[in-house]
């Protein structure tokens, strides 16, 4: 062994380290790109707290949150040019990432504008997990809808884990009549929607998801493809903070 060999070895070792570092940088760059692509395309929608509400769990802050359900994501105002607006896809709006306060009485108001056909599974026609197990539709108290009277659902669930309280809410949303939808189809203006109001009580902090259980991915198997396979239209997150 001569010095030249060992110098060469050292040089190649440094080269190797630099190469490995470059490799790590390349892989990390892929990670950064994917992470950037994963960034929430939505602005978050925060519930506003106003007053308190006495419940069996004690007096809790009363939070309010309002969403709309639109027959076309172009109208939901949640999908601007950069947010992935997709003509013909229904969508919640103005946001699909909801932020709710912990240990609160949350009243959610959904104004809904879409038509409907039939649920894949009739269970999702029931109101589940709300206070009293009911909701109001334009002021009328209701605890279930027939499977063919639904346009979409708001179904909130999450991973059962020791670090957060369970939370399950299912609210079916009443469909607009065909006559009402004709106005939209003909003129492109939304009809007067149904106003659905329901309340539920949040536990401690946690991360949950919600999705629609009404099959709205037309033209795909079980109508659960297309819009149903993408985030930000008929599905999203719920952060209890």
């Amino acid at each position: 062994m001569t010095t030249t060999t060992s110098t060469r070895n050292n040089k190649s070792a440094i080269g190797g380290l630099i190469f490995v570092l470059l490799g790590v940088i390349v892989v990390s760059t892929v990670g950064v790109v994917l992470h950037t692509l994963s960034a929430d395309p939505q602005k978050k929608l925060y519930a506003t707290v106003s007053g308190t509400m006495s419940t069996p769990q004690g007096v809790l802050p009363h939070a309010f949150i309002e969403e709309g359900v639109y027959p076309d994501s172009v109208l939901s105002k949640s999908h601007g040019a950069n947010g992935g607006s997709h003509p013909g896809w229904p969508s919640y709006g103005p946001a699909t990432h909801l932020v709710l306060p912990a240990h609160s009485y949350v009243t959610m108001t959904l104004t809904v504008y879409d038509s409907g056909e039939k649920l894949n599974h009739a269970y999702f026609g029931k109101v589940v997990g709300t206070v009293d197990g009911t909701m109001t539709i334009d002021g009328t108290q209701v605890s279930a809808l027939p499977a063919d009277g639904v346009q979409h659902t708001f179904t909130l669930h999450g991973l059962p884990t020791s670090t957060q309280d369970p939370l399950f809410v299912n609210v079916p949303l009443p469909k607009m009549t065909d006559d009402q939808m004709k106005v939209y189809d003909d003129k492109g203006t939304l009809p007067v929607g149904h106003k659905v109001v329901f309340s539920f009580i949040t536990g401690g902090k946690g991360e949950y998801v919600w999705n629609c259980e009404y099959p709205c991915g037309d033209g795909t198997y079980a109508k659960f493809g297309a819009v149903m396979g993408q985030l930000g239209y008929m599905s999203g997150k719920v952060s209890v903070a």
Binding site: N120, H121, Y123, F124, K126, V128, T155, H157, F168, N170, N211, E213, A222, F224, M228
Partner: peptide, 20 residues
């Protein structure tokens, strides 16, 4: 037991109830 994308539901026919 019914699996739906992405919720499980359970019907107890003898008891006449259905839950998650």
């Amino acid at each position: 037991v019914t699996g739906s994308q992405w919720v499980w539901t359970f019907k107890y026919p003898a008891q006449g109830i259905e839950t998650h």
